[in-house]
Design a protein around this nucleic acid. Sequence first.
DNA 1: CTACAAGCTCAAGCTAACTTGAGGTCAAGA
DNA 2: TCTTGACCTCAAGTTAGCTTGAGCTTGTAG
Lengths: 143, 143
Amino acid sequence: MTLPMILDIGEVSRQSGLAVSTLRFYEEKGLIQSCGRRGMRRLFEASVLLRLALISLGKNAGFSLDEMDEIFTFQDGVQIDRDRLMNKADELDLKIRQLTAVREGLRHAADCSAPSHLECPTFQRLLDGALKKNKVKRKTKGV
Amino acid sequence: MTLPMILDIGEVSRQSGLAVSTLRFYEEKGLIQSCGRRGMRRLFEASVLLRLALISLGKNAGFSLDEMDEIFTFQDGVQIDRDRLMNKADELDLKIRQLTAVREGLRHAADCSAPSHLECPTFQRLLDGALKKNKVKRKTKGV
DNA sequence: CTACAAGCTCAAGCTAACTTGAGGTCAAGA
DNA sequence: TCTTGACCTCAAGTTAGCTTGAGCTTGTAG
């Protein structure tokens, strides 16, 4: 009753929406694994699709591939640093608040007809809200 | 008794936390503007700090510099496309939901001692939740 | 007045995350 | 048998977003 558990790279590409070259690239980086070869061709377990979905989410969340390699590798026996995860979760918290502020800012800007939004009090309030939380983030280096 | 309204690039760098080279780069891209020069040196109005804060938020939200150049330029007279803003806000909505799922996933993973989180039902539920929303690609108008 | 820190320009370099290209393998259908 | 088409490798190219380096200019403190 198990549906095709083994997929070739083209099938994974079709189902994940990622380019074949991207899949090979991810495998080389260690983000995903093929479960063997048939001749020269890579074979993948269907579970790789779940993992790729997780990677997409992570990318969207702003994680780098390297970070995800560390964070999302919940392999058997490999204990992933609990603090590290919590820390990442906290970073996401901040980010979510900021995104929410930006979203509200955009929605407001679409409706508000002030000449310059940078001077609109509502807009500034939203901005300030987001920045206040940001204060904790003193770092010399940008992304 | 207005405090120094005019800042030189070093001061902007100090107050914004961005490298001087980054500020010059942003100016070249048109993301910020200097209000003139003293000799060869750029001068900035204090308001550039607010704009830079907005840019930082936007970057965090995953906007590219080019996008922000279009979206965050609420200049006098320049009418920014209302649909475009709303569309961006909707994109952020989706992103916020995904980030929330990832955050919960991380928090769960930190506590759950299942051997493989990809197989943990709670984790999968969170993942599915995020992915389901992803399917809903509404909105007729693209960029 | 002269040293020098802080500016400046322009070109080149760097990292992440992929993509593209050249050239080769292999199973299957006409 | 011959031809496709999907796969392979490895190297080089691409884009975004900056940073670095070389070489030149200035305002100001000693």
